[in-house]
Amino acid sequence: MVVADKTKEDILKLLSQIADPEIPVVTIQEIGMLRDVNISDDGIEVIITPTYTGCPAMGIIEADIKALLHEHGYDATVKLVYNPAWTTDWMTDEAKEKMRKYGIAPPTHSSCGDIAAAEAEIACPQCGSKNTEVVSRFGATACKALYKCNSCKEPFEYFKCH
């Protein structure tokens, strides 16, 4: 196995193309799940963190990382860490914009203490109106809530701040 000719940055760059299995318009790097890469004589170790403890996408992400690196001739191990705890603050502005265009209202506030306050002014990703309301704090995935827009009447998902 050839590892020596690659730097940590090279590997991170390679991994930055892996899409989030649930929201394929953003990558695991943009969403903040890809934390670090360690290169040693034993091989490559990729450090990831879950968005939610029960996130069912973690298994797929691990498999995607291993498969991509294997394709490039590397064997890798993937380590799951909980510290520091993932937060939507790590999400880049570009990622939030991509998410909005995809139809998901991105998290607007930084990691929130007050859930109700953070939910107050969510703009509809379709029409931009802030006249929206929560249908349920829990949606199709752990990270999203269900909303509806009172202006254009469209239902939409909101990526909860965390």
Binding site: T53, V81, N83, P84, A85, T87, I115, K160, H162
Partner: peptide, 12 residues
């Protein structure tokens, strides 16, 4: 670490 992570979820 597990507690810090859990706390965010427990708030919901």
């Amino acid at each position: 670490a597990l507690a810090a992570k859990t706390l965010k979820e427990v708030k919901y």
